[in-house]
């Protein structure tokens, strides 16, 4: 059972300083400062191309940042090397990134379930291969996580036989089984049929009740409002405005934020 820690506690569990990411000549993230404290639920919103998915993917190093710093529990990720001419570069060892990713879980837009494994095998995989847990223990844990997302009747079903919403719930269970300190959701409902969105959002909300630390990139602004303790509005690769859900959705201070929120039907009134 995860401890419920108040969101006001001390040092950030995950932190970025001046985080930058370029793809070739295009700079997508232009210096992002972010503090994630234990129990925080942060919704990252913004138009397409604003860099919100890239930001999330840099936090578990699915993408390697091209500048800035990331700290996990106060520890800087990556090794800084200084060249003879004084210029600095950061290198990341596979071992270090494996450890970060184990602690910072991710749920993808496209689920990325393993199609050659049943639901329960998908959820067991990290426990067995990464955590080196015995199979029997992993199976029990996986069954528990699948029950938590309401899929205890689908343990031996392969992903190809599940609906999109069910697949995404298996993916959530798979991430939860690793007991990550932070859980990242990258547009978890964007590839779902509208009628399947609700079940996935409800699942995510139950995790909120458990006090999980989560970051969520989403287009579902109504959900972001219900879900988040903090909202970040990204515009053109920088944090344009940040605040509580109430502040950002009901009383945005900046023109661009206001325009973005107004475009969403849920807040257009």
């Amino acid at each position: 059972m995860s401890e419920i820690a108040p969101s006001t506690t001390d040092a950030p569990i995950l932190r970025s300083e001046n985080l930058r990411k370029s793809f070739g000549p295009i700079e997508v993230l232009k210096g992002i400062d972010l503090d994630v404290k234990r129990g925080d639920r942060i919704a990252i919103i913004g138009g397409s191309g604003s860099g919100k998915s890239t930001l999330l993917r840099c936090l578990n190093f699915m993408e390697l940042p091209t500048g800035g710093k990331v700290f996990l529990e106060g520890e800087r990720i990556g090794t800084v090397r200084t060249a003879r001419d004084g210029s600095q570069s950061v290198t990341y060892s596979e071992r270090e990134l494996m450890s970060v990713r184990r602690r910072v879980g991710m749920v993808f837009q496209q689920f990325n379930l393993f199609p050659h494994m049943s639901s329960i095998e998908n959820v067991m995989e990290g426990l067995v291969t990464v955590m080196r847990r015995p199979k029997s223990e992993a199976r029990a844990r996986a069954a528990h996580e699948l029950e938590r997302v309401g899929l205890s009747d689908k343990l031996d079903v392969y992903p190809g036989r599940l609906s999109g919403g069910q697949q995404q719930r298996v993916a959530i269970a798979r991430a939860l089984a690793m007991d990550p300190e932070v859980l990242l959701f990258d547009e978890p409902t964007s590839s779902l049929d509208p009628e399947l969105v609700g079940e996935v959002l409800r699942t995510i909300l139950t995790l909120a009740e458990d006090g999980r630390t989560m970051l969520l990139v989403t287009h579902e602004l109504g959900f972001a409002y219900r879900f988040a303790t903090h909202v970040i509005y990204l515009y053109d690769g920088v944090v344009h405005e940040t605040g509580t859900g109430e502040q950002i959705f009901r009383n945005p201070q900046k023109e661009k934020t206001r325009a973005f929120i107004a475009r969403s039907s849920e807040f257009s009134l």
Binding site: N60, M62, E94, L97, M98, S99, R101, R102, G105, M106, F108, Q110, F111, N112, L113, F114, E125, G126, T129, V130, A171, R174, A175, M178
Partner: peptide, 21 residues
Amino acid sequence: RGQWEGATALGMSRADALRRI
């Protein structure tokens, strides 16, 4: 690519991802 990402996001090494997934 998503299969590599699904595997490495769990903390798998490249070698394990290759072998298992």
